[in-house]
Amino acid sequence: MSLYKRIIPCLDVANGRVVKGTKFINIVDAGDPVEVAKRYDQEGADEIAFLDITATHEARKTIIETVEKVACEVFIPLTVGGGVSNYSDVLNLLSAGADKVAINSAAVANPNLINQVTDKIGRQCIVAAIDVKQNKNNSNWTVYTHGGRNSTEIDAFQWAKELCDRGAGEILLTSMDRDGTKKGFDLDLLNLISSAVSIPVIASGGAGTLEHLRDAVVVGKADAVLAASIFHYSIYSIQEAKEYMRKHGVLVRI
């Protein structure tokens, strides 16, 4: 039997507040992280992800305080990512109460960071985040860094394998082609990466309907789905998502 599939709401956090918005809409305040996280816990979220979107180094200290506050009130696994650049960033977040830390651009710049962290504190703490875009010419996917601003020469399939070999505990896979489109996850991409690695793959980018969530795990073989807007804007509740998935044959925690 395989494991129960996880649903992970992802919150953007800036300066100690949850914010929402897209590149087309101004970012607006969406509440206190503790309250929002508590509500998702009560609704049945399996984990919570915080993405620190603070731009300046100085303001980044607030994410530590935010994690500390949330960890005193919410008792489900907490993943924190965004701008994590070295070993001490990881340790600071873990000691503040994060259970897992997502590393993205820093792993591309210094792949040994993954070995360094997981050798010392175990692979369960590290989520390797990969942002990818499909190539027009050969249909492969290429890795992007710095929030999708910089392209690399790295092939997503090879990179996922390497991250797994280096000790990452999970892969958080974001399709930049689908992100924000609400057209559904990139199922071919998910299938490819899930087949490449022996660690759980979290699908991200493109969730618009409950069917999309189901497809990510049934067709794309993802182990978990991460979604932001469909939960934040209360298009669906987490409970509705889980009931839908259960009705369609997916094992979920209800």
Binding site: S2, L3, Y4, R6, D46, R123, Q124, G169, E170, S198, I199, P200, D223, A224, R253
Partner: peptide
Amino acid sequence: NLKVPHMGWN
């Protein structure tokens, strides 16, 4: 074929 670690709710 099982994913290891066994990570998640059970």
